[in-house]
Design a protein around this nucleic acid. Structure first.
Lengths: 235, 235
DNA sequence: CAGGGTCTGATCGTATACAATATTGGGTCG
DNA sequence: CGACCCAATATTGTATACGATCAGACCCTG
């Protein structure tokens, strides 16, 4: 059975192309598992087990783990392996504070350079997002939300800032989904996205930036409150 | 002869302990080479050559390169190797803009929690920095500057922000050294550090934050000007 | 002579095998 | 009875060997 599973696992990885190397594919697979919550924070990732499951050797596993560590999704301690890293309340607060500081600022730089094509793409994203909300396909919310926010800021001409924000969005992905599903703020978020888009297209850039700030602030506050209530949040 | 050289190389790496694994040691060695300018941007890093030079196999080399890629020091293209990555003007501007946005904000949060011990450490760092300036030991400037700035912000209670700033400081290390040695702003920087420290200790936190902002802004502007002049800046 | 295809060399990516290190359980000593 | 030490085991780290992929040169063809 072990062999069968290995073969199946290998096929599933190799089949899901779009990657040029196995290690990249494994990194992506593990990333999704972590972000989706299938791998909870604190869980230890043993190289042997993963290698057997995917039907590959440990080398690509190790490299995938290193890539994940770069993104802060796991923490590697020499000779002691890798554990899925969760976020403390301080880190969540910090991440949202950073978003509040950076995103509106970048939107002001980026908004005037958004082309009609950008707007149509963003609207498509928003529609897809709305559809996912109704369909309840929770897993895709974070991805779509991320692409929407990054799309808004695409033309700010600040590559490093964008990379940082991409990391922030990824890391607050799971918490944000939690916040949305618990509070039912999905409709609110959707509406705010729409309004931000409209304001940008109308040239009301400062207003759009303000709304974006409020949008992020609200999510952050709401989320911190949730964390505080269910105090049993693993590190 | 090859064997002899490999053994010697291995000794030199393993001897410089402080690291728990060979790959970490290699990562640190390469990091220093890149930050010191011994490895210029655009240079291609071939795994075989590095492995032979360090007297180890390619596996730790690969893992070291992945760690460096995490820090943005090299870029890895599948099947095509790793190249040392330089910074474009936009990236330099972006990095300093981020520092201007983040550092003063964090100083306000951190300053009131600085203990007498922190102050004595920071003064020691500043003294060491001053000594390095006079001694002309350019290589250590960045390290000391980095530790000073991070030390100031240590108690802000914003771990993610701190990590981001640490990355920013590292990446603008070499450009900053360039700026300091070209403009002779070393004395100015040293004095500003001293004044910031004094203001913090006197409880003039807002003033300290303002000076910090000016301090970073000046370095950024000056550096961008240098870049513009010597337009032959490799990507 | 130009263009394309193939073939060779080099380099990277992965598998397998071995060595080093941390953890756990038992045993002994105080 | 508790604490410490030591050995066995499991897990990680590294070396060696093999397979896959890409860049460039050469040859063949139109």
């Amino acid at each position: 059975m072990a062999v069968t599973e290995r073969a199946r696992g290998a096929r599933s990885v190799a089949g899901g192309l779009g990657h040029r190397t196995v290690s990249a594919a494994v990194a992506e697979a593990l990333r999704q598992r972590i972000l989706s919550g299938a791998l909870a924070p604190g869980v230890q990732l043993r190289q042997d087990a993963l290698a057997e499951e995917f039907g590959i050797s440990r080398i690509p596993i190790r490299e995938a783990l290193l890539q994940l560590e770069a993104g802060g999704l796991v923490k590697i301690v020499p000779h002691r392996g890798a554990v899925v890293s969760g976020l403390s309340i301080e880190e969540v607060e910090d991440i949202f504070q950073l978003r509040v500081s950076l995103e509106p600022q970048l939107l002001i730089l980026s908004a005037r350079h958004l082309t009609p094509q950008d707007f149509s793409e963003l609207r498509a994203l928003r529609d897809e997002y709305g559809a996912a909300l109704k369909a309840g396909t929770v897993e895709t919310w974070g991805e779509l939300n991320r692409r929407f926010h990054l799309g808004l800021l695409r033309h700010a001409g600040r590559p490093r800032s964008l990379a940082i924000i991409a990391g922030l969005l990824q890391d607050c992905d799971r918490p944000t989904r939690l916040q949305l599903s618990v509070t039912g703020d999905v409709a609110r978020a959707d509406m705010e996205h729409t309004t931000i888009l409209d304001l940008c297209e109308a040239g009301e850039i400062v207003a759009a930036a303000n709304l974006l700030r409020i949008h992020v602030e609200h999510a952050g506050r709401s989320l911190v409150e949730i964390y505080r209530r269910s105090a049993a949040s693993p590190a």
